[in-house]
């Protein structure tokens, strides 16, 4: 057992936990933050992505001790001051989710991509960079559009390809 302390969604937390506890177990079972989902338990599907000090991490293969002393953000902590993150809004606007199970991981990975990718975001970049997140419902079409839309909003850029900018959802 070990006493583990970290900041989760801006709040300092400390708990006595078994050394072998995974970060996702700590979040879901100890803190009751069930928005982070266990999809494959092997770092392959991305349903469990959270940010550790602002960097995306698949929390199903992170030991809780590895996050000790650091700042963890989960889907529950992405909205700021009651205002949804632009990517959360874009997911709804562009119908980028269906069952919603992979969605927290998609949003967390996409938000980090928008915040940190050094170059221009386009369809090719989004598809390459998001490859570690699986979705079985959407065929990815609308997730790509949501990330590009939120990216343009946050970065103050324009989407030049009309097939990516339009609300293809209304086709």
């Amino acid at each position: 057992m070990a006493l583990i302390s970290m900041t989760v969604n801006g709040v300092q937390v400390s708990q006595e936990v078994d050394d072998s506890t995974l970060l996702i177990e700590f979040l879901r079972e100890k803190l009751k933050l069930t928005g982070t989902h266990m999809g494959c338990d092997t770092t392959q599907c991305g349903c469990c992505v959270v940010h550790i000090d602002g960097v995306s991490a698949k929390s199903c293969t992170v030991l809780v001790g590895q996050a000790a002393g650091r700042s963890v953000t989960t889907i529950e902590g992405l909205a700021k001051g009651g205002e949804l993150h632009p990517l959360q809004k874009a997911f709804r606007e562009h119908h980028a989710l269906q069952c919603g199970f992979c969605t927290p991981g998609q949003i967390m990975a996409g938000a980090e991509l928008i915040a940190t990718y050094p170059g221009e975001l386009n369809e090719h970049v989004v598809r390459e960079e998001m490859e570690g997140n699986l979705c079985r419902c959407t065929g990815y079409h609308n997730i790509v559009r949501a990330i590009l839309a939120a990216g343009a909003e946050i970065r103050g850029t324009k989407i030049t390809d009309p097939t990516l900018a339009s609300h293809s959802v209304e086709g």
């Binding site: 989902h37 889907i75 909205a79 709804r92 119908h95 989710l97 919603g100 199970f101 959802v169």
Partner: peptide, 22 residues
């Protein structure tokens, strides 16, 4: 193409999937 009623809970991590219940 009305936006979905389901989405608000699902994009904020407040969905109610089976394993979320304890």
């Amino acid at each position: 193409p009305l936006r979905r009623k389901e989405d608000e809970r699902l994009i904020t991590g407040r969905g109610q999937f089976t394993d979320d219940f304890s």
